[in-house]
Simulated assay, not measured.
Amino acid sequence: MTTLENDFIRVAIRPKGAELTSIVHKPSGIEHLWQAEPTIWGWHAPNLYPVVGGCLNNVVLIDGKTYPMERHGFARQSVFEFTESTKNHAVFLLRSSEATKTHFPYEFDFQIIYELDEKQLTVTYRVVNRDEKTIYFSVGAHPAFAVPFSAEEAYEDYFLQFEQTEPLETHMLSANGFFTGEVKQVPTERSDTSGNRLRLTKHLFDQDALVFKNINSRSVVIRSTKHNHSVAVRFPEFPNLGLWAKPGAPFVCIEPWLGCADSEGDLKPIEQKEAIQHVATGKVFEASFSIVLT
C-alpha cells in the first residue's frame, strides 16, 4: 500500500488496479472513500481501461478479430508496478504483456499518476503507444464516495451540485448494461448560487446508472444541507459522466469518462465505438481529473 499525505489530505493506493482505497480529510478525520464492503460493492475507486462500460458479447473487435473483454476493462484487476514516489506524488505502471494481448493486442504503457496539492488530489491517466499502429481505447474513473459523511446525518441530507445550469438527460441502459437509445430527463432543483442540484435518494439509481453524454458541467460537488464540508470532482477533459450507487447503499460514484458502454445492436470495430480515444505510434495520451476536499 502506498500513502501520500500533506497537511489536509491523506490517501492510500493499492497495487491492484492502482486503486485508491482511502481519502481522509485530516482536519476533520473524515474518510471520504467508500470502504468496499464486499456484501454491497467490493470496490473503492476502480480505474477503467481499455474500455468503459460493457462490451457487446463481452468482446472487442480489433482488426477483424474478437478479443474477450470484461466490463470496464482489465486494468482494475491487474497488478501495477510502483515506479515513482515522493510524499505527495506517486506513479503506477501497467505495461502490455502476453496476458494483456489476449484481450487487447497492442503494445502500451498505461500510467496512473497521483499528486497532492493542498486540498486537491489530481489523478492523471497516461497512455503511451509503443506499438507500430494507432491504439484505440477508452479510459475513465469510478470513485465511490461515502455518504453521509457522519453517522448523525442521512443520505437524503445530501445533494450533487453541478457546475452549470443545464437540462440533465440520462441515456438509459438495458438490463445487460447497454444503451437502448432512450433518453430520460432527470429532475433537478435550481440553485441560487450556481448550477443544478440533484438530490440524493435511496431510489435515485433504481434503474442503474445515470449517464450524461457531452455534459457542459465540468465539476460536481457532494454537499450537505447540514454543513459546509464538501467533496468536489473536477473533470475538465472528460465530456461524459456517470453517476451510480447500488440502490440503498451509503455511497455515490462520480465517474468521469472518456468512452462509454456499447449500444444494443451489432458489434462495431473498436475504432467505431462511441467516444473512443486514440493515440498514434510513439505518441502519448494524457487526461486528468481532480478530487477537492473543502
Rank of each mutant, 00 (worst) to 15 (best):
T2N: 13
T2M: 14
L4P: 00
I9T: 02
I9F: 00
K16H: 11
I23Y: 00
E37I: 15
P38Q: 14
T39P: 11
P50W: 00
G53Y: 01
N57L: 06
D63E: 15
M69Q: 04
G73K: 01
F80I: 05
Q111H: 11
Q111S: 05
E115N: 02
E118W: 11
E118C: 09
V123E: 11
R130T: 04
T134E: 14
G140F: 10
A141S: 15
A141Q: 09
A144I: 10
V147H: 08
E152Y: 13
Y155V: 14
Y158G: 06
L168A: 08
E169C: 03
L173T: 01
T180K: 01
P187L: 08
S191E: 08
K202C: 08
L204A: 13
Q207H: 15
D208H: 06
D208G: 10
L210C: 11
V221F: 07
R223C: 15
V231M: 14
V231Q: 09
A232L: 11
V233W: 09
V233D: 11
P239M: 13
A249F: 14
P250D: 14
P250M: 10
S263Y: 04
E264W: 03
G265H: 09
G265S: 08
K273Q: 02
E274N: 02
Q277G: 03
H278R: 07
E286Y: 09
A287D: 14
S288F: 10
S288L: 09
T294M: 13
